[in-house]
Write a protein that binds this DNA or RNA. Structure first.
Length: 191
DNA sequence: AGTTTGATTGGCT
DNA sequence: GCCAATCAAACTC
């Protein structure tokens, strides 16, 4: 993917990422569900209070990968947006397995063999299946220099739906903003 | 310095 | 439906 396509408002970029391919090593998935986090003005964003050790890669140029540890247990992957210095990102919530399914199943060892919809149907699952962890935080998805990249094969989802983001605390003022986007025809969307 | 919360998942009641 | 796992940040003394 080209960098300038990603260097804008995460709310506008997020639906454009549906149908794109995230590849890590020999494993790849087509993105079917995302959420936009706008940065400083978004009270649900990790960058709402400025830079911290965890969120520093959100301040990298568009196209960087932002990986963080969620609940101290799972990893979540984001595509950084906006130009360098302006925080904002799109959370990759779910994908359809395209390549390396055997490797995915090995990493997602609790999943029954042949159960394709359990491999990548959630942000933590997607990272586990693709082998994405904190080592890849800050990797450039445009150049793919660290063997993770975003690819565009021209596929466009037949339909896109939007709604409130998932898992936000009750006190977040932005909890009802419709910044989650998904392909309603995909069986790989998170529940 | 100690406590609570959170962009989740899987297992158990 | 409820709960534990487990760590960084934000809160509250």
């Amino acid at each position: 993917m080209e960098r300038d396509v990603l260097a804008g408002d995460p709310v506008e970029i997020a639906p454009l990422l549906l149908g794109k391919i995230l590849r890590s090593g020999a494993v790849a998935a087509r993105i079917v569900e995302v959420e936009a986090y706008r940065g400083a003005g978004d009270d649900a964003s990790h960058a709402r209070n400025g830079p911290t050790r965890r969120n520093s890669s959100m301040y990298a140029p568009a196209g960087a990968l932002y990986v963080y540890l969620c609940y101290g247990v799972h990893h979540c992957a984001n595509v950084v947006c906006w130009p360098k210095g302006v925080p904002g990102a799109v959370l990759l919530r779910a994908g359809e397995p395209l390549a390396g399914m055997a490797e995915m199943a090995t990493r997602r060892r609790r999943v029954a063999p042949g159960d394709m919809t359990e491999l990548c149907s959630g942000p933590g699952k997607l990272c586990e299946a693709l082998g994405i962890d904190l080592d890849l935080d800050g990797a450039d998805l445009v150049t793919g220099a660290r063997d993770v990249e975003l690819l565009d094969d021209g596929f466009v989802p037949g339909s896109v739906r939007s709604g409130p983001r998932i898992g936000l605390g009750d006190r977040r003022a932005s909890r009802s903003e419709p910044w989650r986007f998904w392909d309603p025809t995909s069986p790989h969307v998170s529940r």
